[in-house]
């Protein structure tokens, strides 16, 4: 079991209100990602759930039980830290066994559990090594192993991939997703990387300045962002925001068009623009254009679309995928 409920949870550090007030429901078995720019309070929120920080107000319940004042260890959660926080003086085996030892489990059972975890995480050959002798990815897996053996009701991940290089990040993303499918345990994952959020989450919680901007599945957020912030944060490259004549003609203060929702042609279209930068990624080409009467726009073209600096290109936005926002920045329902 692992359902977590936050009620009116707030946190202040001295004068600073980091989290004004948050309500959130996390269901058992869900993979929830807290995403937002740095300083948005996502890590603080995770640490409040973990019990590493005291809440300033409100209640936290796990499986219906109020744990607001419980010590971290009593909450039945396991955490994977950004720095992995492995014990440098212990072997991998002892690192993974540490929580079991603290729980006074008998040695035979500890050995079995550590062995199982090592097998799942491909660490069997490294059990006698110290963390200092491992690569970044292996350390990451040890940290996860230490979390798994406790069979927690939920896993908490605090930006676990930010210290890895790009290739390894991709692999570990898959491994963590795979782990979630195997274990079916609730996972709460904090990141500033919207790609990690989109690819892994069942449910994304977008945070900004300590407030929840929107909660939803990755596709919900992508298709129907509730406001400008979410629209700009989810999706890569970023959504184009257009103001002025064009937006007005669509009945909005701001019109949002994703780069992938713009048709490109060399012959004709609604707008015309000049290519300022062309990023050829192989399968895709991202064109940064200066559009006449509108300004800079990013658009996605196919990999075969040959365009380079200075070329004239015609653009046509897909009206059916248009996002409209009012003068408060909120989305206008169709």
């Amino acid at each position: 079991m692992g359902s977590i409920t936050l009620k009116n949870v707030s946190k202040t550090f001295g004068e600073a209100k980091v989290i004004p007030s948050i309500d959130l429901e996390i269901n058992n078995g869900e993979f929830v990602v807290f995403v937002g720019p740095s300083g948005c309070g996502k890590s603080t929120l995770l640490r409040l759930i973990a019990g590493l920080e005291d809440v300033s107000g409100g209640h936290i319940m796990i499986d219906g039980k109020d744990v607001t004042d419980a010590a971290p260890a009593e909450r039945g959660l396991a955490m994977v830290f950004q720095s992995y926080a492995l014990y440098p003086h212990m072997s991998v085996r002892k690192n993974i066994a540490f929580p079991l030892k603290m729980a006074k489990m008998d040695q035979a059972q500890i050995d079995k559990k550590v062995g199982d975890a090592a097998r799942i995480l491909n660490l069997t050959d490294y059990l006698e090594r110290r963390p200092g002798q491992l690569s970044g990815g292996q350390r990451q897996r040890v940290a996860i192993g230490r979390a798994i053996v406790r069979e927690p009701s939920a896993f908490l991940f605090d930006e676990p991939l930010s210290n890895l290089d790009a290739a390894l990040r991709g692999t570990m993303r898959l491994e963590i997703s795979d782990l979630h499918h195997q274990l079916k345990t609730t996972m709460i994952y904090v990141t500033h990387d919207q790609i990690e959020a989109m690819t892994m989450a069942d449910k994304i919680v977008v945070l900004n300045r300590g407030n929840i901007e929107q909660v939803g599945s990755p596709l919900e957020l992508y298709k129907t962002p509730r406001n400008l912030f979410v629209a700009g944060f989810i999706g890569s490259p970023k959504m184009n925001f257009l103001e002025g004549e064009y937006a007005k003609s669509k009945g909005a203060k701001t019109a949002g068009v994703r780069p992938e929702h713009i048709g490109l042609s060399k012959d004709s279209g609604l707008w015309s623009g000049t290519v300022t930068v062309a990023e050829h990624l192989g399968a895709d080409t991202f064109l940064h254009l200066d559009v006449d009467g509108i300004g800079p726009i990013t658009a996605r073209a196919g990999g075969e679309f040959g365009a380079s600096y200075g070329d004239k290109v015609f653009l046509t936005p897909d009206d059916s995928k248009l996002h409209r926002f009012d003068d408060k920045g909120l989305a206008i329902k169709a």
Binding site: A50, A73, L77, M79, F81, A85, Y87, P99, R146, R150
Partner: peptide, 25 residues
């Protein structure tokens, strides 16, 4: 600090934290 927090998440009390983590380090 994260190592001490990890120890607390792992269920170590203050003495266990000192004996198993802080003292050796």
């Amino acid at each position: 600090g994260e190592i001490l927090e990890a120890a607390r998440m792992d269920g170590a009390g203050i003495w266990q934290e000192i004996v198993y983590v802080l003292a050796p380090m």
